[in-house]
Design a protein around this nucleic acid. Structure first.
Lengths: 203, 203
DNA sequence: AACAATACCGAACAAACGTTAGATTTTGAC
DNA sequence: GTCAAAATCTAACGTTTGTTCGGTATTGTT
């Protein structure tokens, strides 16, 4: 295995190969299910031989771990970016709309949900770590809801955490039925959800 | 392969074994992902040898097909049952609440979502058939929403099919985070969703 | 140019997979 | 009890999987 935490911060060839491996593995995990992707396919897509992968990763699960880690981290960055872009002084509900939209776009782009089921197979230690990342991610949305509540924008008598999970779940699951060829854009869907979320559909 | 469409309606031993195979396969697909369940594990759980399975099913995919078929069929039955129980003359929104509750309960009990992933791997012919079943299932909810619209119970300006998918998705995804040990019951969650769906959360 | 360290190849491994086919047992009708 | 049909067993098959390892290029430094 190549340089781990060595003082050398020079970009070696192994670093590039490792990055390329994570890149193609991520793409393959998106396009096909995470179970259909073999190390040989990853290797082929990275223009490398199968055995060479084990110079960079000690096992297949380590690749999955790297992909998941980068995945959640990126999603968090994108959602936080969208929230920031909405402006810190905008309404919490506007920022929530931005966050949900970014979440949906990321989920669609990376077919997030198909990965999650792989988590159960992960070693306990790594799984816990990933769950923590997931909690941090959810906290963004919970924070916005809480802020809206504090500013008196919300009704009372509902469970914010359940609503948060229902809303995020609705979008996460949207990746299963969303049709890029259809008339709806991701923003349309996010708008629709936000509309239901705020005003409801009943007269 | 045993009796197919023979006039004999006697319950043979193969019928029982076949039923038992579907039963344990269903359970195994729930508990573990559908990809981790091997033919040998199904056989072992059914107290049979691996090779004997091929007396009842011509391939592994045929088992999966049988499981999916029974799964969607049962879900449909339960949802329709809950709707009927609510009374044909009750408000469409009350019946929608009943349908969503039944959907959630079935999803929780059978860990439905974990199965859907396998659909992409199914032979095209079988997949189309299953998609059709899925559409029939969704039509129950679409019908209730449409009826509510016709009776003037709903606002205008939202897309019913998107709302339907968001609502069903929110519950389907609930299977990923629902904690049976927690304070919430499935009915609580269905109530919460129905509350948001109708009244929204904003002031 | 020479020489370690680095990066990768390529062939093999054992294990597990779905599946097959012949032998063997179990079942139900007579 | 007999005997064919039905149901299951048993032992293998050919693949594919993740992984290992000794060898071979490639690289960067002197």
């Amino acid at each position: 295995m190549p340089s781990e935490k060595s003082g050398k911060d020079r970009i070696t060839k192994a670093d590039r190969t490792r990055a390329r491996l994570i890149e193609v593995a991520t793409r393959l995990f998106q396009e096909h299910g995470s179970d259909e992707v073999t190390v040989r396919r990853i290797a082929a897509a990275a223009k490398i031989e199968a055995g060479s992968i084990y110079y960079h990763f000690s096992s297949r699960d380590q690749i999955l771990r790297a992909v998941l880690e980068r995945g959640v981290g990126n999603a968090r960055d994108e959602v936080l970016g969208a929230v920031a872009e909405a402006g810190a002084d905008s309404s919490p509900l506007v920022r929530l709309r931005a966050a949900l939209g970014a979440h949906l776009k990321y989920t669609l782009r990376h077919h997030f949900s198909s990965r999650l089921k792989a988590i159960r197979r992960l070693p306990k230690r790594l799984r816990d770590q990933h769950m923590q990342q997931e909690r941090d991610y959810a906290a963004i949305f919970a924070g916005l809801l809480a802020e809206a509540g504090r500013k008196g924008l919300l009704q009372s008598g509902f469970d914010p955490s359940v609503v948060r999970m229902l809303a995020m779940g609705a979008l996460t699951w949207a990746a299963e039925w969303y049709d890029p060829e259809g008339a709806m854009t991701p923003d349309d869907i996010a708008d629709e959800l936000m509309r239901v979320l705020t005003k409801g559909i009943a007269k």
